[in-house]
Design a protein around this nucleic acid. Structure first.
Lengths: 210, 210
DNA sequence: GTCTATACTGTGATAGAC
DNA sequence: GTCTATCACAGTATAGAC
């Protein structure tokens, strides 16, 4: 049996998932946790602070669950497979759905923004490590900032998860297209030197034009 | 001077942007419109239905504003430039921010989901047209579904806009990385036949392995 | 630490005057 | 079409009994 603090943290995540950012309140969270509403303020001071703590708590827990699978990734193909099952698993019961909700809330509530960034960065760090391993042999690393690419990947991932929530079929098509795109990137690795030369030529030409 | 219906539609968008999905209510919207709260229910039946109508209204208006610029896009470089200024313009005063909020709300409120899809599809259609023009000469069209790619692009775009709302610097890095990636795709066009051959070889090999 | 009780404000929605 | 008035309920937050 978990203590009340932990029960509230977990109930906050569950409520974010089931009711969304518009549906969370001290009352709904406390009801989910099976405790009194006043304890939210006793333990966390305000609903916002509870949400912030919950996101950090949840992301850390959830990432620990995926860490081994991230570490096992060696190719782009494997990274994509992990991304797709992560997408499926997280949407239903994970913390990315909750993260997406505070991300939306953080747009207008400055108190939520820092916690959201912390939660996102935990994922980004994991993606960046996997990406730099996967792309080590690729001509891409020469031209693209892997840190930035990891951030873009994480942001796009959240966007796709939200998209899936309102149009599952459309999201499926989007994911399929991205997989096709990945085959192309794999092909680039087979022709590394050629690509490098072409990109350099392209960069020169672009600079001349400007 | 606009009629009350229109004032409510526009006020709903403005409230979504300024207060987020968690902050919209018949009262906040009516206050923004400068009319009485009861008129929300008289004209739209419920807050949800007003939000749905507002998203559709806003997306259509906003896209009309961008239509010429979408039509003028002929290269990937131009599409990226449009995407970046669209990103900047929409975040501050546009309808994508509002769309992102109902997208988050639609995860848990089934009544919001259809309207969100309609709004998103308006953007997706525009992106798809531009993409198919831009990629016409690229070897990509042979291997990647452009419709799916447009959906992925729109979803990623919304994700990046939300990301920007909580971490502007990180979002900037993400966008920069995506631009670098685009140079690579441009380079591919310069070597179309070669790439086509490499991808086909890669596809054959992948099939053998499975 | 946890509960009850309470204050005050916000919310969706309706009835009815104008 | 627009307003005022009103309803019953949900929201944050605090004080104080246990």
């Amino acid at each position: 049996m978990a203590d009340t603090r932990t029960k509230l943290l977990e109930a906050a995540l569950e409520t974010l998932r089931k009711q969304g950012i518009a549906g969370v309140s001290a009352r709904t969270i406390a009801a989910e946790a099976g405790v009194n509403q006043a304890l939210v303020f006793y333990h966390f001071g305000s609903v916002d602070q509870l949400l912030g703590a919950a996101i950090e708590h949840g992301s850390q827990q959830r990432i620990a669950l995926y860490r081994e699978r991230f570490a096992a990734v060696g190719t782009l193909r494997e990274l994509l497979d992990l991304g797709r099952s992560l997408h499926t698993e997280e949407r239903a019961a994970g913390s990315v759905a909750a993260l997406a909700q505070v991300l939306a809330g953080g747009q207008t509530d400055p108190k939520l923004a820092p916690a959201t960034t912390v939660g996102l960065n935990l994922w980004i760090a994991e993606v960046e490590q996997a990406l730099s391993r996967v792309l080590a042999a690729s001509p891409l690393v020469e031209f693209v900032d892997v840190g930035g690419l990891a951030k873009a990947t994480a942001a796009a991932f959240v966007g796709l998860e939200l998209y899936e929530g309102v149009d599952a079929e459309g999201a499926g098509q989007a994911l399929d297209a991205l997989e096709d795109l990945a085959v192309l990137v794999s092909a680039l690795e087979d022709m590394g030197p050629l690509v490098r030369r072409a990109v350099r030529a392209r960069l020169r030409r672009t600079q001349d034009h400007s």
